[in-house]
């Protein structure tokens, strides 16, 4: 699964939060299968319990129920959690809200 996290494109989304075991967490980055969040005190990441939910005040399309979540690993103040959303467009949705989505590479207009 760690390998899978490396295989998927990661996005950074401003204001995207995730509710784990009833506690709201800030996301660091997210791919279609894993999300890195800032650790909050008092949460047992080894035995995560629902409800799980993505929340965003800025983007309605990101507010989603998550059926299951499972800790992959912790690194410093960040924990990486596996999840799955059954939506073939989920990767495109994440890409649309990525902090780099507004930028298009310059083209060679003189070519």
């Amino acid at each position: 699964m760690v390998t899978e996290r490396r295989a998927h494109k990661r996005y950074v989304i401003d204001g995207l939060m995730v509710e784990l075991a009833g506690v709201v967490h800030e996301t660091v980055d997210i791919s279609v299968r894993a999300v890195a969040v800032v650790i909050r005190p008092g949460v047992d990441y080894a035995a995560l319990k629902p409800p799980f939910r993505f929340t965003s005040e800025k983007a309605e399309g990101l507010n989603r129920h998550i059926p299951n979540m499972r800790r992959l690993y912790e690194r410093g103040r960040v924990v990486v959690v596996d999840y799955f959303i059954d939506d073939p467009e989920w990767d495109n949705t994440l890409a649309a809200y990525d902090v780099r989505a507004d930028v298009k590479p310059l083209e060679d207009v003189f070519g």
């Binding site: 401003d14 410093g76 103040r77």
Partner: peptide
């Protein structure tokens, strides 16, 4: 300002270390 500030999030994550 919001757009530019949002791009600082990965840098903020570095500061967590």
């Amino acid at each position: 300002r919001d757009t530019l500030k949002s791009k600082l999030k990965p840098l903020a994550a570095m500061a967590l270390a």
